[in-house]
Amino acid sequence: PGGALWRTTLTPEGPGLERSAVEPANGTVELSSWGPGAQWLADRLPTLLGEGDDPRGFQAPPVLTATARRFCDWRIGRTDRVLEALIPAILEQKVTGKEAWLGWRTLVREFGEPAPGSAALPRPLMVFPAPEVWAQIPSWRWHQAAVDSKRSQTVLRAVREATTLEEIGEIDRVAAQQRLRQIPGVGVWTAAETVQRATGDPDAVSYRDYHLAQEIVYLFTGDRNGTDEQLARLLLPFAGHRYRIQRLSELSGYQRPRRAPRMTVHDMRTM
């Protein structure tokens, strides 16, 4: 509402709600926050906006020069909430975005709690459920939320390690992904998506994505049938900044011409 960004988070201090908006006159970001986690959110706003990101040494390739110039102020932020990034990534595994967000929305609305300070909004916002709440969701409710047993079991394995997972932002970024991948059901793609959001890793590429390799390889070379192996070779000169290439490619709006049928949407609730 009003051009502002509203965001809920289950912080280490408890649930919190924040509203951030850019002041057009001077470009500053104004923040309001509510709940037990209000101060935690306020303290981390600069990090969320990318204060800790260092793009020095990155040179965009010619195909992305215009995009990099257009988004020259873009920085990679970090939420510092690992489980809040990991569970949505698990729900996105091998399904369409529509299916994944149906499951996410259904589960958070039912098992989350109303965000402090959101009662005045047209629709109260919900806070991410605590690990112990995720652990108690019955199997039939996952099914009703269109989440198959493979993904739900991966979520349950992750929440059992919630405390140690939240510490990966303090370790080496390679070790962080390795730690995530020790959880059965969490692979290369899921680990990369998690650290991109939670720790702001500028080098984490979403390999094994349904479209990513084909899109970026086509952008760079014109080859319509790009593979992860080709993508890895193309990105090697940008080591340390490979996620920047991924995100700038997305921001460019450039898409490979579609010829194959779209991925089929399955309604797990009817199976």
Rank of each mutant, 00 (worst) to 15 (best):
W189Y: 06
L49C: 06
Q177M: 15
S252P: 00
G37Y: 06
R197Y: 01
R173M: 10
T11Y: 05
R109C: 09
K94W: 01
R75L: 09
V82I: 11
R208T: 14
A115C: 02
F71A: 06
D73V: 11
W74T: 04
G50N: 01
R69M: 10
A119M: 00
D201Y: 10
R141F: 02
G117V: 01
L45Q: 15
R75T: 08
T65H: 12
T199L: 12
T199F: 02
G187D: 09
V63F: 15
D172A: 06
Q246T: 06
A85R: 09
P24R: 07
T11D: 07
M268Y: 05
D223R: 02
V133W: 01
S139T: 15
V147Y: 03
S118G: 09
P55W: 02
A135Q: 15
R262H: 08
G200I: 03
T9L: 09
W134K: 10
V22D: 01
Q196L: 12
I216R: 07
V155H: 07
P88Q: 14
A204V: 09
T264E: 08
W134F: 10
G27P: 04
R157C: 12
A145K: 04
T264K: 08
R224G: 02
T9H: 03
W140A: 13
S32P: 01
D80N: 13
E113R: 13
P122Q: 08
